[in-house]
Design a protein around this nucleic acid. Structure first.
Lengths: 218, 218, 218, 218
DNA sequence: TATGAATGAGTCTTCATTCAT
DNA sequence: AATGAATGAAGACTCATTCAT
C-alpha cells in the first residue's frame, strides 16, 4: 500500500500516501501538489506563501509556475481531486450495496468516514479552504458536494418512505451524519487505540442509530 | 431578511446580536470587535486585512490600533469570548439539569447546539481560526475547549457506567455529538423551515439515540 | 550640587544632574527635557519616538505637546542649551586665564573636557544629532560651535605667532584637541580608576604636548 | 569637484571609491551597498528609509530584499566590511614596521588616519551607527574594534615599559589618538589646502608628541 | 495641564507573479 | 524544466501630530 520505491538521492519521499489514486500527477508536479496539500492543510491557504511551498519542494518560487498557473489553481486542483475522490468513493460503495436503504446507509457512511480517515489533509483542505476559491474555480467542487449530499439525503428519504427509518428530522440527521465524517480529520489519528476499521464500524453504528432503523424486512 | 431599520448615519447599527453577553466592550471597541468577527467569519483571519476591517468600521487603519494592539489580539479576544460564552452556556445548562446522565446529555447538547445557532459567526471563528493564534494567545481557549469536551466525555462515561447508555464507542460518540453542534453554523440559518427550537430538539434526539439510551430508572 | 528636594509622590527623581545650570526649565517641562536627553542620547533622535518619551516621563504623548511644539523643537532646545553651556564654560575659563596662550590653552582644554565629562548625554546629543535639525533650528548651534572652535584656533594662532607653540599643523592640531574632548562621553565613566580631575589633567597635558609648547617667557 | 564623467544612463557611475577592496560585492548588490553607505552616512541609519535607498539605486524597494534580507543586514554588512578593512589596514601597517614601539606607533596612526580619510563615509557609518545594530549583528564588529584598540594600547604599554614613551596617562592617550583618527571624516575633505599625506604626517607627529617619545636608541 | 481617540503619511517587509536566460 | 532578478501592490503596524474634552 506504500509504494515508496528507491529513487535518486534527490527524491524526497513523501511518506504516507497523501493524495488519492485519482490524482494522475507525477514527478515534480506531484511533489508540488503534495507540498501544497501539506502546507494548505497545516497553515491554511491564505497563510501559505508560494515561497513556503517552493522551499518545501526544494524549488525556486518561479519554478512552481512552470507546473501551475497560480496559487489558486493549485488549491483548485486539490479541491477538485478531493471532491472527485470523495464522490467516487461514495458511488463505488453504493454500487456494492444492495437496494435496502439501511445497507446503503451503512455503505455510504463507511466510505465517507474511511475516506476522511485515509486522506485527512485533503479532507481538511477541501472542507476548510474552498471559500478561498473564486466562484469559477469553486463551482465544480460545489456541484460535486451537492451531489454527494443528495446521495445521503436520498437514502434517508427512501428509508423514511419505506418505514425502514424513523427520522428525527431529515435535514438535521443528514447534517449530523455528514459532520460525523467531516470532523474525523480534526481529531482522529490512526493508532493502536482506535484503528480505522473500528472507527468506521463505530461511525456506521452511530449513523444507524441516528436514523432510527427499524427491524428489517427479513 | 435584512432588518436594519433606518437610523442616523452615526449609529452604525449592527443588526443582529453578533457577540454574546459576556463581551463587555462598548463604543468603538465593540464596533471593531463586531466588524472583525464578521470579517474573520466571512473571509478567514488571514484573508482579512486591517484595511478591510478599518473600512468596515469606518475608521483609519491606525485607529484600530488605539483599541487593540494587533490583528492577532483581535482574534484572540474573539476566541476568548467565544470559548467563555460556550463554556458558560454549557455549565449553566448542566446546573439546571438533574443528576441523570440522560438529562445532563439533553441539557448539554441543547445548550451546545443553541449557542452555535445563536452565534454562528463567533462559532465559525472560534472553530476554524484558532490555529492562526500563537501558542500563547491560543492557550486559554485550548484549555476551555478541553474542559468543555471533558464535560461531555464525563457524562458519557457516567451514563455508560450506570447502564443508562449503551455506547457504540465513547470517543467516537463524543466526537460525533460535538461535531453535530459545531457543524450548525456551516449549514443552518434560522427561518420558517426550521426554527432554532426545532433544530435543538432534533439535535438532542439524535444525541440521545447515539448514546443508546436505555429505559430510565423510573 | 544636587538639588533634589522632596517633591510630591509623583516626582520622578532623575538622579544625577543631566542638564547644565543654564537650562531654566522646571517641573514637567524639565522632566520632559531630561527624558528626551536620555532617550536621544541612548537611542538617537530618529530612533526615539514621542511615545517612548511619553512613557519615560509618564505622560500621554499628547501631553508632551503642551510643553513643546514638536519633537524637533525638543532636540533644538537641548542642542541650544548644550552649545550655550559649552560656550559659556569656555568663555568663563578663558576669563580666568591670563594672557599667556599656554595658560589659555590649559584653561580652554580643561573646561572643554570637564564639560564633556560632566554632561556626557548632552554632549552626545549635541555632537551626534545636530544633523537631524532643520537648517533654521540648527543655525544658532552651528554659530556657537564655530565660535567655540574659533576660540581654540585663535589661541593656537597667537601661541604660534609668539613662538610659544611649535605647531605641527594648526588645523589638524585644533581638530585633534577638539576631538580629544568630544570623544570623552564615548569611553569615559567617572570612577575610582580615573576621576574627572585626573582625566582633565591628563587631557591638558596631551594638549600642551600637541602644541609643542616652548619654555615660557619667565 | 564632481568628477563624474558622462557615461551611459545605465552605468550609474559611483564616482569615488566608497568601499574598501575587501568588499567583494558586485553588480546590483554592490550598488545597493554603496547607496546604503552614502545614505546612512548622510542621514543616519534610522533616518534612511528603504524607499530612499531604492530610489538612489533605481530599484523598487522590494528588489533590495532580493539581495539583502533586511535594512539592518545592510548596515551590518557595511559595519563588518568597515571593521575588517580597518583591522586589516592596521595589521598590515604593523607588519611593515619594525620592533621599535615608536615606529609601530607611527605606522599604526598613519594607517588609522589614512583609512579614515580614504573611506570617510564608511568610517562615519561604522563609528556612529553601530548602536543601531542588534547585539547579534553588532558582536563581530565589537570584537574587531576591541582588538584594534588593543593594538594601540599594547604599543603604548611596550613603549612606556621600555622607557621609549613618557605617557601622561595610558588610557587617555590611547583614547586621544583613537579620536584623532575617528574625527577625521567629520571635518576633513581632501583638497589643495591639505592633502591626505600632509594630514597623515601631521597626525603622526601629534601622536608622537602625545606619547612623549624620548630620543631613540640610535 | 493633561487625556484619549483619531488621523494620514509613513515604516519595513512580504506577496504572487513575470521574464530573460 | 528551472533559475535569479525584478516588479508593483499590499501586508501589518508605527509615526508625529491634532483636537475635543
Amino acid at each position: 500500500m506504500n509504494d515508496r520505491s528507491p529513487r535518486s538521492r534527490l527524491a524526497r519521499p513523501t511518506g504516507p500516501v497523501l493524495l488519492p489514486p485519482n490524482v494522475a500527477a507525477e514527478g515534480t508536479r506531484r511533489r508540488i501538489l503534495e507540498g501544497a496539500l501539506l502546507l494548505f492543510a497545516r497553515e491554511g491557504f491564505h497563510a501559505s506563501s508560494m515561497r513556503d511551498l517552493a522551499r518545501i519542494v526544494e524549488l525556486q518560487p518561479s519554478a512552481v509556475y512552470v507546473h501551475f498557473p497560480s496559487k489558486e489553481h493549485l488549491l483548485a486542483e486539490l479541491v477538485r481531486a478531493g471532491h472527485e475522490a470523495h464522490q467516487g468513493g461514495l458511488r463505488a460503495a453504493l454500487l456494492e450495496a444492495g437496494l435496502d436503504p439501511l445497507d446503503q446507509l451503512r455503505a455510504l457512511v463507511a466510505a465517507h468516514v474511511r475516506l476522511h480517515a485515509a486522506f485527512p489533509h485533503l479532507a481538511t483542505v477541501v472542507n476548510t479552504e474552498m471559500a478561498s476559491l473564486s466562484p469559477d474555480l469553486a463551482a465544480p467542487g460545489l456541484a460535486l458536494r451537492k451531489q454527494s449530499m443528495a446521495l445521503l439525503v436520498d437514502i434517508l428519504a427512501r428509508g423514511a418512505a419505506s418505514g425502514r427509518f424513523a427520522l428525527a428530522h431529515a435535514t438535521v440527521t443528514a447534517a449530523a451524519i455528514s459532520a460525523l465524517g467531516q470532523s474525523v480529520p480534526a481529531w482522529y489519528a490512526p493508532g493502536p487505540g482506535l484503528d480505522v476499521d473500528a472507527l468506521v464500524e463505530a461511525s456506521v453504528e452511530l449513523a444507524v442509530r441516528m436514523v432510527g432503523a427499524q427491524p428489517g424486512p427479513r
